[in-house]
Simulated scan of single mutants.
Amino acid sequence: MDRRPDGTWLVTDDKGTRHVAHAVTGADDEVWVHVDGEVIVVASASEQRTRPHSHGHATLDAPMPAQVTAVLVAPGDVVEAGATLVLLEAMKMELPLKSPFAGRIEAVHCAVGDRVAPGRILVDVVPREETP
């Protein structure tokens, strides 16, 4: 299994055939893996897929091909760590994207009804400034 720069995995089956896999953390921190049109629940995880930036921001991106079913935040909203920001639907499953930390929504790059590809940035989050 090899992780690719776009966040997907290249996996080899027992016959030597290579497949691209997408993984997402779902409800109750289950990890769902999407390979060749099938979704398999494989394990528990404690991390969600986010891309940190050097200036402290994080972007949440689509973990697999999906459709946006709800956008629960707007730019400027203050959110707590673990708050659901966007709901996606893929293969008749609901995929919540959650804030990795307490912060403020800097930008929302999707709308209800959008079909999104893996890796498409959906939300930018800025960490909440701590007061001295």
Results as ranks from 00 to 15, higher is better:
54 S>N: 09
39 V>D: 10
52 P>Y: 11
46 S>M: 15
40 I>N: 03
37 G>P: 00
47 E>T: 01
37 G>N: 01
52 P>R: 14
46 S>K: 08
60 L>Q: 03
35 V>C: 10
62 A>M: 06
49 R>E: 14
64 M>T: 01
42 V>Y: 04
46 S>G: 03
60 L>T: 01
53 H>I: 01
45 A>G: 06
41 V>Q: 02
57 H>F: 15
39 V>T: 04
65 P>W: 05
55 H>M: 05
55 H>Q: 09
56 G>R: 04
41 V>G: 01
53 H>V: 05
63 P>N: 14
34 H>F: 01
39 V>W: 07
52 P>H: 07
65 P>Y: 07
37 G>Y: 02
67 Q>H: 07
61 D>Q: 12
62 A>D: 10
51 R>D: 14
59 T>K: 13
37 G>W: 02
67 Q>I: 13
48 Q>A: 10
63 P>W: 15
42 V>S: 06
66 A>W: 09
64 M>G: 05
45 A>T: 01
66 A>M: 12
34 H>K: 00
40 I>G: 01
54 S>W: 09
58 A>K: 03
60 L>E: 05
50 T>R: 11
44 S>I: 02
36 D>Y: 07
54 S>Q: 09
36 D>S: 09
49 R>G: 04
35 V>F: 11
45 A>K: 03
42 V>N: 03
47 E>F: 06
37 G>S: 02
37 G>A: 04
63 P>G: 12
60 L>R: 00
44 S>E: 09
60 L>F: 11
55 H>W: 12
42 V>K: 00
67 Q>M: 12
44 S>L: 14
63 P>Q: 15
49 R>F: 09
36 D>E: 13
56 G>D: 05
38 E>N: 03
51 R>W: 11
50 T>C: 12
47 E>P: 01
42 V>L: 13
64 M>W: 09
42 V>M: 10
40 I>M: 11
65 P>T: 08
57 H>K: 14
49 R>V: 02
64 M>Q: 08
52 P>M: 10
